[in-house]
Design a protein around this nucleic acid. Structure first.
Lengths: 247, 247
DNA sequence: ACAAAAGTGTTTAATATACACCCATGT
DNA sequence: ACATGGGTGTATATTAAACACTTTTGT
C-alpha cells in the first residue's frame, strides 16, 4: 500500500490491516480499497487498508499511519482486536500477483495484526492522495469477496466492535459531536442487529450521566426537531461494566 | 525456548508467548520459565513460555506446540488475546544477552502474539524435558519482574481471562472434571477478585442446565462431603451472553 | 393533510441482593 | 469437641420489558 517510504525500513513479515467503520442513515459502512488488478482477471478487487509495519514503529503507530494516509486525521479511534497468521492466508493467484507488483519480498510469510477504527461522519471525506482515491464506503451487509483473508478479518472486526459497544460507551465515535437519541439508537440497532424499544432505550441512556443534553435542537428537519446531546468524558468514570447491553 | 527444530524454519520476526493459568486451593497460578542468566547478574530470571513461530505453522499451532512441549498435552484450552509489538520491548541488557545465546538473529524486531491457556489440576505435572524442568507455578499475586514485556503480557492476559469468564462458561477448564460448587465459586472469586454470596451463586449456577449433578459425592474430606458436578457441553447451547457476570 | 420522527409513564415480570442457621465428616 | 465446608429459603430492591398516543415541523 503505502510506497512513499524506503522499503528496507519495512518488516517483511508483519503487517497491520484496518477495518474502518462509519455510520450514516444507510447503516454501518466499512472503508474498502479498490486495488489494481495486475492481470485484469475479474471485475473489481477490494481489500482492507493496511501495510507492512516499519521496523522502528509499534503496531498502533503503524495502524495510525495507514489511517492518516487515508483520511488525513491523525488519531482516529483505533483498537487492535486480533492477529491473523495462517500460512495460507495469501494463496489466491491474483493476491500473489498483486504482492509481486508491490512488495520487495512478495513470497514472505506475513502475519497481520487486525485493527478496527471508528470515524465520525463529518470526517467521511478522504485524503486526496492516490491511496485514498481508491477508497469506497461499502455497507457491511454488502461487502463483496475481498483479497487475502480480509473477509475473515472484517467479520472478526465486527464481532469485536459489537462486544465493545455492549461494554463501553464508544458509539459516539461513529456519530457527530452533537447527536440525537434517535441517531444513537439507530447506531446500536445497526451494529448489534437488534431492535430496541424507544422508551426503554431513552430511559436507560438518560440514566447515564455522561450523555448530556445541550441547549440546542435540530434544525431544518421535516419533523419535530430533536434535542441534541453530547458525550461528556468527565461524567464518565468507569461505572460501566456491561452497561450498554441491550438484550 | 524450544531449540529442537531447525532454526532456518523459524520466522525471526514473529513469536507467540503463553500465559498458562492453573488453579488450586492456593489461588490462581501462572506457569513461569526460569531462564539461565547468561551473565549471572541477579537472582532468578523468569519469563513466559514462548517461541518464534515456524514459517509453515499458523499462530494457534505455534502456541499449541509451545504448550505441548511443556506439558505433553496436545490440545489445551488456548485463546489468543493480543499482539505486542513495541520496538523497545526487548531493551534490557540481560534480555538481549539471553537472545544472543539462543536466537539465530538476536537483533531482529520481534512482534509477539499473546495467548492464554487454562490447565486442569490433574494435568499440573509437566513434561520431563529440559524446557519443562525449568517451569514453576507461581501465584499470580506474587509474580516477580519478568523478562521483556512479559509482565505487561501477563496483566493483559489476566484481563482477557476475566472478561472471558464473565462471558462464557470456561472456568471448568481450570477445575477437575468432577468439581464441587465450592470449587467453582472459589475459582470465580479468585479470578474476578470479588466475593460472591454462596446461596445466590448456587441458585444462579443450578439454573444453568449445563452444570449437572453426578451420582457421586466427595470422599475423604474433613467436612460434609459435597455433591460433585460436571460440565455438560450438550446442555450448553449459546444461552450465554454475559451469563457469568457476578457484579 | 400528511409524513416523519420527537417525546412521554405505567404496569408487570424477571433478576439481583441481603441475610443465618443446622449438617456431616475427619481429626 | 472442634474445624471445615455443605446445604438450604425468603423478603426486598432493582432492573428489564411490554406497550400507544400526542406533538412539532417541513413539504
Amino acid at each position: 500500500m503505502d510506497q512513499n517510504h524506503l522499503a528496507f525500513n519495512l518488516n517483511p513479515n508483519v503487517s497491520v490491516d484496518c477495518a474502518v467503520f462509519g455510520f450514516d442513515k444507510g447503516g454501518l459502512k466499512v472503508l474498502l480499497i479498490e486495488r489494481d488488478n495486475p492481470d485484469n482477471t475479474e471485475g473489481k478487487n477490494y481489500q482492507l487498508p493496511g501495510d507492512l509495519i516499519r521496523n522502528d514503529e509499534n503496531l498502533d503507530d503503524a495502524a495510525n499511519r495507514v489511517l492518516r494516509e487515508l483520511t488525513n486525521i491523525d488519531k482516529l479511534f483505533l483498537e487492535q482486536f486480533a492477529a491473523f497468521g495462517d500460512p495460507q492466508r495469501v494463496k489466491r493467484e491474483n493476491d500473489l500477483e498483486w504482492l509481486r507488483s508491490v512488495r520487495k519480498d512478495p513470497e514472505a510469510r506475513v502475519v497481520t495484526i487486525g485493527y478496527y477504527s471508528l470515524i465520525k461522519p463529518e470526517n467521511f471525506k478522504l485524503a486526496a492522495n492516490s491511496f485514498a482515491r481508491k477508497a469506497e464506503w461499502v455497507n457491511v451487509k454488502e461487502v463483496p469477496e475481498l483479497a487475502f483473508d480480509h473477509n475473515q478479518i472484517l467479520t472478526s472486526a465486527l464481532e469485536a466492535l459489537k462486544l465493545k459497544m455492549r461494554t463501553v460507551p464508544v458509539g459516539f465515535e461513529l456519530l457527530p459531536k452533537k447527536f440525537t437519541l434517535h441517531q444513537l439508537q439507530s447506531l446500536y440497532e445497526a451494529v448489534l442487529g437488534t431492535e430496541i424499544d424507544k422508551r426503554n432505550f431513552r430511559r436507560k441512556i438518560l440514566g447515564m450521566k455522561f450523555i448530556v443534553p445541550l441547549d440546542e435542537k435540530q434544525k431544518g428537519v421535516a419533523h419535530k426537531p430533536a434535542q441534541l446531546f453530547q458525550f461528556n468524558k468527565k461524567n464518565y468514570n468507569q461505572n460501566f461494566s456491561l452497561a450498554f447491553d441491550f438484550q
